[in-house]
Computed example of a mutant assay.
Amino acid sequence: MQGMARTDKWFELANRLGLLFVLLVVLYPVVYIVSASISDPIFVNSGEMWLFPKGITLEGYERVFQNPEIWLGYRNTIFYTVLGTSINLLLTIPFAYALSRKDFAGRGIMTAIVVFTMFFGGGLIPTYLLVSSLGLVNTVWALLLPNAVGVWNLIICRTFFQTGFPKELQESAQIDGCSNTRLFISIVIPLSAPIIAVLALFYGVGHWNSYFNAIIYIKDRNMYPLQLILREILVMNQMNDSMMMNGDDMVAMAKQARIADIIKYAVMIISSLPIIVIYPFLQRFFVKGVMIGSIKG
């Protein structure tokens, strides 16, 4: 027993050291980007700033937020994220609950059709033609409806309903005269806070980081999401930098490169900060959601 206890201690120590190493590997890039966003690019590019900020300056954030389109992008992205996540939850949760019910006729065929779409898609051009034929191009619905239900999230939600709600609960509710609709609204939904939070996090992050669909479907700049505006800022700074490589104005070229470096790190922080702030409030639900389906009682 004493030998086993010593072995367990060494095992625990190895686990702690391993987790500490992983933490440092994950945490260092985050700290570096935050420090670089408020440091003078001269120290960043020379390697003198490797962890903590040096030559502190907020010029990058000032330049980014001086662009009025940033605030427009924030407004649009928040709107897209809230509305899109709401649509995702309203469609995914009832669909998943129906597929989890063994008395749902044709659920096997329906599940097979849904899973089929995970492996085979129409492609970009057929999808664009479909969206265009429906009159959704340059509308908010072009960003929200094509991805209204995520198949992987649907499977996770269905697994939660299958493993988290015993058949006896449904039977007892039916004996008391509870309809399927009442059962779903009054019993299932209130007990599904963990999976709802997990789905909201998954869908919300997807909407917040999405920019490709906006490039394809949105033509009006007033409808651009934040990620697309930030992408344009980075691209324009890189283009301006390359276009000035004529050797006539080296001072202006160096200044433009410095501004591009400042903006680059500031954009990274601005685009990811809201999700980083929200995540701790959903962490406990997220951890529980990861364990969905691992234990079946």
Score class of each variant (00 low, 15 high):
53 P>S: 08
54 K>Q: 15
54 K>C: 08
55 G>M: 06
55 G>F: 05
56 I>Q: 10
56 I>H: 06
57 T>G: 06
58 L>V: 09
58 L>P: 02
59 E>W: 05
59 E>S: 10
60 G>C: 07
62 E>Q: 12
64 V>L: 13
65 F>A: 03
65 F>E: 03
65 F>P: 00
66 Q>F: 08
68 P>M: 02
69 E>N: 11
70 I>M: 10
70 I>L: 13
70 I>S: 00
71 W>A: 05
72 L>V: 07
72 L>F: 03
72 L>T: 08
72 L>H: 04
74 Y>A: 07
75 R>T: 09
75 R>D: 04
76 N>M: 02
76 N>I: 00
85 T>V: 12
85 T>Y: 05
88 N>Q: 14
91 L>W: 06
92 T>W: 12
93 I>S: 06
93 I>H: 07
94 P>H: 13
94 P>I: 15
94 P>V: 15
95 F>W: 13
95 F>C: 15
96 A>K: 09
97 Y>A: 08
98 A>L: 14
99 L>F: 12
100 S>P: 10
100 S>K: 08
101 R>M: 12
103 D>C: 05
103 D>Y: 08
105 A>E: 13
105 A>T: 15
105 A>W: 14
105 A>R: 14
108 G>P: 04
109 I>F: 15
112 A>P: 03
112 A>Q: 06
112 A>C: 08
114 V>H: 06
115 V>G: 09
115 V>D: 07
116 F>N: 08
116 F>H: 07
119 F>C: 07
120 F>E: 02
120 F>N: 03
120 F>Y: 08
121 G>C: 03
121 G>V: 04
121 G>A: 11
121 G>M: 04
121 G>D: 11
123 G>F: 01
125 I>V: 14
126 P>Q: 05
127 T>G: 08
127 T>Y: 03
128 Y>C: 01
128 Y>G: 00
128 Y>H: 02
128 Y>K: 02
129 L>C: 11
132 S>N: 11
134 L>M: 15
134 L>Y: 15
134 L>E: 13
136 L>K: 05
136 L>R: 04
139 T>Q: 03
141 W>R: 01
142 A>L: 00
142 A>T: 02
143 L>H: 01
143 L>E: 06
143 L>K: 02
144 L>E: 00
144 L>T: 03
145 L>C: 06
145 L>A: 13
149 V>G: 00
150 G>K: 01
151 V>T: 14
153 N>S: 12
153 N>I: 02
154 L>N: 00
154 L>R: 00
155 I>T: 07
157 C>R: 00
158 R>A: 04
158 R>V: 01
160 F>G: 03
161 F>N: 06
161 F>P: 05
161 F>G: 05
161 F>C: 09
163 T>M: 11
164 G>V: 09
164 G>W: 07
165 F>M: 14
165 F>Q: 10
169 L>K: 04
170 Q>M: 13
170 Q>G: 15
172 S>E: 15
172 S>Q: 15
174 Q>Y: 11
175 I>V: 14
176 D>I: 01
180 N>F: 10
182 R>P: 00
183 L>W: 10
184 F>D: 04
186 S>K: 13
186 S>N: 11
187 I>A: 04
188 V>F: 07
188 V>E: 04
188 V>M: 08
188 V>I: 15
188 V>S: 03
190 P>E: 09
190 P>I: 07
190 P>S: 10
190 P>Y: 04
190 P>C: 09
